[in-house]
Every structure is written in C-alpha cells, then in structure tokens.
Amino acid sequence: MNYKDRYSIGEVSQICNVSKKALRHYDKIGLIKSERSCNNNYRYYSNESLLAVPVIKYYKQMGFKLDEMKDFIEGTVDARGRIYTSIKRSFNAKIDELKKAQEEIRRQYESVKDWHDLILEAEMVIDNNIQEVAVKYVEASDYLFHDQIFTNNIEASIINIEFTNYVEKVNNEITGPVLINFSSFEDRLQNKHQPVRIMQKTLRECKEHEKMTFGGQMMITCYHIGSHKTINETYEKICTWARRHRYVLGKKSYERYVTDYWTTRKSSKFVTEVMINVSRN
C-alpha cells in the first residue's frame, strides 16, 4: 500500500481492521496517540501510529493486556538505561502466567475426558447387558487413599465429604471413578460395618505416604447393573463361578463405581465393577 503522512480515524479503522471505538480507547490510555488538526480539531494519526496497530494485535494474540504492553511499546528504560528490562520482565511474567493456565486446562481436560470415558463405558455395559464373570489382568496404578469405617451407607461413601475434605487438605484434585476397597467381601455380603479404603486417581502428583498402588495382578471381575442394594447378587455370582472354575478368592474386594450418584439419580442405570483378587486352586 502507499503510505502517507496523515490518516483519519476512519482510514486507520478501515486499513487496519480495527474499530473506531478501540482506536479512541488506545488514544485515551496513551497506547496509540492521535493528533488534532488545527483547522477543524479532527483526530488524525501519523504513519507511525498506523503501524503500531499490527504490533498491538500481535501482543494481544500472545495474551498481553493493554496496560501490560504499554511500557515496552513505549520503550521505557531502567535506571541503567537498558530498554529491554521491562520487556523481559513482562515476558517472563506472561510465560509463568501461561504455564499456570496451561496446567489448569490440562487438569480440566483430563477430568472431563475421564468422566466422559466412564459414561461411554456404562453405556456399553448397559446396552450390551455385560454381566458375565471374567478373570483379567488389572494394570497397576497409583491412587490417593483415605481409610474410613463403612457403616453401610454406600451413597455417603461414594459422595464422600470426609474424602473430599482430605483431597483439599493435601492440595490435590481427583479424577475418574471412586473405588472402595472393602477389607472383607464376606462382611460386605452381610452388610456389616467394616474398615474400608476410599481410593481415587489424582490430577496432581501425590506424596508417597498419600498414595497406594492398586492392580498389577489377576483379578476376577463382574459388572453390576442397577441399584447397589442388589449388589450381593453379583458377589454371589462371582463366588459360584470361582468355585466352578476352581479359583480361590482373596479376602478383600474392590468396587469401582463407573456411574453412580455423581452421574445420575436413576439407580437402575448405575454401573459398578466388582473386583476380587484371585488365584488358581
């Protein structure tokens, strides 16, 4: 394009694809200063002001606010006459800010993705009525854990206020399904009170004393569809299958809540995976 010495606000707006309102605001805060005509007091811009618009757009693309970019656009110098000090300071601060934002988005994405995967899993289990007993290798994973006493209130154990408070206390965030490790699956069958361990994966690294490893071994598993009040039926199915196929069940059991009170109030659509350590007779 052919450049000239003076541009009206309308010309700058059209050439640089920026609103007149924005240009007036830039003028007001001293970011792109205009001059006034002696003849009619109209606002006009120099060639230098015109070329400042793409620079501002680029800094905005990087996430800088107008007040943040003002110092280094104006070329502020420090006490030793160095012009790049404020620029480096601003960019270092922006890098730190964006790293924090990137980490926050990562955690949010992972949490939403894990939840979405659970919904897909539950839908597949229900649509195909998958309730067969199977033996499979469960990959080892680390979980944040909290020891409690189970008082036969399964809803309060899954939506667990005490565990939620503990997660906040250790400055962490949770993701994926809740797991409850029952110290005795036989006591679970009889609805007895017993020590349990609440387990869930985290979005931040746990300290060593806060985490436990679950899996890394063969387990007998079976999906339970429906209310937790009838989960005894699935335990009995597992026990019968294990005897028939000469497997020895461990003492403890794990219940992995694929969908539950966190997802829906329709208990008929709950999906729970029951898992018990197993070995050959």
Rank of each mutant, 00 (worst) to 15 (best):
210 E>W: 12
165 N>R: 10
238 I>G: 03
173 E>I: 01
175 T>R: 06
199 M>R: 00
172 N>S: 15
217 Q>E: 12
237 K>H: 15
230 T>A: 04
185 F>W: 15
232 N>M: 06
236 E>W: 01
193 H>T: 11
205 E>R: 11
245 H>W: 12
235 Y>M: 05
218 M>P: 09
207 K>V: 03
221 T>I: 06
209 H>M: 13
225 I>P: 05
213 T>A: 08
159 I>N: 14
245 H>Y: 15
162 E>L: 02
164 T>N: 11
200 Q>K: 06
225 I>M: 04
223 Y>N: 14
228 H>S: 13
166 Y>E: 08
173 E>G: 13
177 P>K: 08
234 T>M: 03
176 G>E: 02
199 M>S: 06
229 K>Y: 07
171 N>H: 13
184 S>A: 11
163 F>I: 03
164 T>R: 02
161 I>H: 10
226 G>S: 06
229 K>G: 06
185 F>H: 15
214 F>P: 05
184 S>H: 13
219 M>Y: 10
236 E>G: 00
233 E>L: 07
194 Q>K: 11
170 V>K: 04
216 G>E: 02
212 M>A: 12
205 E>D: 13
158 I>N: 00
176 G>Y: 02
156 A>M: 09
189 L>Y: 03
165 N>A: 08
246 R>P: 01
223 Y>S: 08
166 Y>R: 07
163 F>W: 03
182 F>P: 01
168 E>R: 05
189 L>P: 08
246 R>D: 12
156 A>T: 10
172 N>P: 09
218 M>C: 09
234 T>I: 14
186 E>W: 07
235 Y>F: 15
185 F>Q: 00
214 F>S: 01
242 A>W: 02
212 M>T: 04
198 I>K: 01
229 K>D: 13
212 M>L: 14
217 Q>N: 11
189 L>S: 04
162 E>N: 11
176 G>L: 05
178 V>T: 14
218 M>R: 09
168 E>F: 08
206 C>E: 12
228 H>V: 02
224 H>V: 13
189 L>Q: 13
232 N>L: 03
244 R>S: 12
206 C>Q: 14
